[in-house]
């Protein structure tokens, strides 16, 4: 495929806009407790930020930004965060995913649960971002190269 050169405007705008998209993604993740949002939605927005760079730039650039071979391991790591939190609760004597058994001292039980929810939302967001990027890489990969 021929080498594409993006127009400077697109490059500039995408560079300008990407951090804000990411910021918004983090907002959605962390605001999931108080309004519509959460890990999946936030993760999808984060992925959108990454994908914007992928669409605009060449592999040399975006591979620095987010290596395409890391998609699957990152996804696995994200799910592993979720899994690990449940597993820690199980090891510490509760049922799987019983956040009240998490080793967070000095919080009320409701707060411990709230924190547990936050932690797994982060895991979800991480996994969803990585997997969506990986899906993009694999489905559209041949066009990009």
């Amino acid at each position: 495929m021929q080498h594409r050169i993006a127009s400077p405007i697109i490059l500039l705008v995408s560079r300008f806009i990407t951090p804000y998209i990411m910021l918004y993604g983090f907002y959605v993740i962390f605001h999931g407790h108080y309004g519509p949002g959460g890990g999946f939605q936030g993760g999808a927005i984060l992925a959108a930020a990454v994908l914007l760079i992928r669409i605009v730039n060449d592999p040399e650039v975006y591979e620095i930004h987010f290596k395409s071979s890391f998609g699957i391991p990152f996804g696995a790591a994200g799910v592993l965060i979720f899994f690990g939190i449940g597993f820690i609760a199980m090891v510490l004597g509760g049922n799987f995913l019983d956040y009240s058994y998490l080793p967070l001292v000095g919080l009320t039980q409701a707060d411990v649960r709230s924190t547990g929810i936050l932690l797994i939302e982060i895991g979800v967001a991480f996994a969803v971002m990585a997997i969506l990027v990986s899906l993009y890489d694999n489905l559209l990969g041949e066009e990009n190269v």
Binding site: P73, A76, F83
Partner: peptide
């Protein structure tokens, strides 16, 4: 089931 899930997560890592 979680044993298998753990395996599936650990294999790529």
């Amino acid at each position: 089931p979680l044993l298998f899930l753990a395996a599936a997560l650990l294999i790529p890592l």
